[in-house]
Design a binder for these strands. Structure first.
Length: 315
DNA sequence: AAGGAGATCAACCGCCGTATT
DNA sequence: AAATACGGCGGTTGATCTCCT
């Protein structure tokens, strides 16, 4: 009856913080044997932990391809944009942030970004402007927030529709899988938008020659994430997600792929959590409105300066 | 220097979807 | 088809750290 257990439940398992010795045991075992069945791993590795705890420790901390430390501005922007589109689907968001874990992103959102958006008068849950954002808030602030929210919702719906079409087309063409068929991430829950992202990405190859990852194969390796040039991702993503060239993104990407000297520049950028940062977010959204071929309803921006003004206010 | 408050983050918990028998 | 195991996900907790008074 049912599947046989791969390991027995055991009482008296240890909980709480991991010791360096435990880390060492887990690392050594996985390096030698791979993790295999997580439930049987602790016994084999000589750990008094449950398999779930081992898996968590590995995926969130010990895995060698994890980047720790401060999030870059580009990463922050990506998180905000993706959160507007996907909500609290941290694993899906993590798919687009190389070397970051969903847990780390979730923590960062809850401790930093959520508060910052709230400060801007945007409800971090719905990405809609808060009704009580008043007080010092001007009309421009409110309109900018409303616009940001509106755009996110619109893009979300659009991507979903595109993805649906892509899925249907894919099903129809199942017999002869296209080159892009291997692009879908089996680990990602982004299935609804993934194909749309790529379709859009391909469509933008011309306009975003610098922004587009060198190749899809490269872009989606084992982890099905974008390539190593993390800073390239947001620019690319923004362009893809927002269906437009992104102000300043080309510059950023070109600089990044140029390489290491620019990492220094990136670090400098990281330090400036200032109004330039926030205006770039609004600017990005704004440029999607003004240049997108997609019609974005009556709320289309007529005065770009409005957002810059609002962004300045946010800071 | 000490204590309190708030911030941070690793880890746990419970649920869900999928695979397996 | 039903039962069960397993892995993965998102929400939450609690220990620790940092800052402020």
């Amino acid at each position: 009856m049912g599947r046989s257990p791969c390991c027995e439940k055991e009482a008296g398992l240890k909980k709480g913080p991991w010791t360096p010795e435990e880390d060492q045991k887990l690392l050594a075992f996985i390096e030698q044997h791979g993790h295999g069945c997580w439930r049987s791993l602790p016994a084999k590795a000589g750990l008094r932990r449950c398999g779930k705890s081992c898996r968590l420790r590995w995926t969130n901390y010990l895995r060698p391809d994890i980047k720790r430390g401060k999030f870059t501005l580009q990463e922050e922007q990506t998180i905000i944009q993706l959160h507007a589109l996907l909500g609290n689907r941290w694993s899906a968001i993590a798919t687009h942030l190389p070397k970051r874990t969903d847990n780390e992103i979730k923590n960062y959102w809850n401790t930093h970004l959520k508060k910052r958006l709230a400060k801007m008068g945007i409800d971090p849950v719905t990405h809609k402007p808060r009704a009580d954002a008043g007080g010092a808030s001007s009309g421009a602030r409110y309109r900018a927030a409303a616009h940001l929210s509106h755009t996110a919702q619109w893009e979300s719906a659009r991507l979903e529709a595109e993805a649906r079409l892509a899925r249907e087309a894919k099903l129809r063409a199942l017999a002869s899988p296209p080159a892009a068929s291997g692009l879908e991430s089996p680990t990602s829950t982004l299935s609804f938008s993934e194909s749309a992202l790529f379709a859009a990405g391909a469509a933008h190859d011309d306009a975003h020659a610098v922004l587009t990852p060198r190749s899809y194969g490269e872009a989606f390796g084992e982890q099905h994430r974008f390539g190593d040039d993390a800073a390239a991702t947001p620019g690319f993503l923004a362009g893809v997600l927002l269906d437009c060239p992104v102000a300043g993104a080309e510059q950023r990407f070109a600089a990044t792929s140029a390489d290491a000297g620019v990492i220094e520049q990136q670090h400098q950028e990281e330090e400036e959590v200032d109004k330039g940062y926030w205006s770039s977010i609004l600017n990005m959204v704004n440029s999607s409105m003004s240049s997108s071929s997609s019609s974005l309803t009556s709320e289309a921006v007529t005065d770009p300066a409005m957002y810059l003004t609002a962004a300045a206010e946010f800071c």
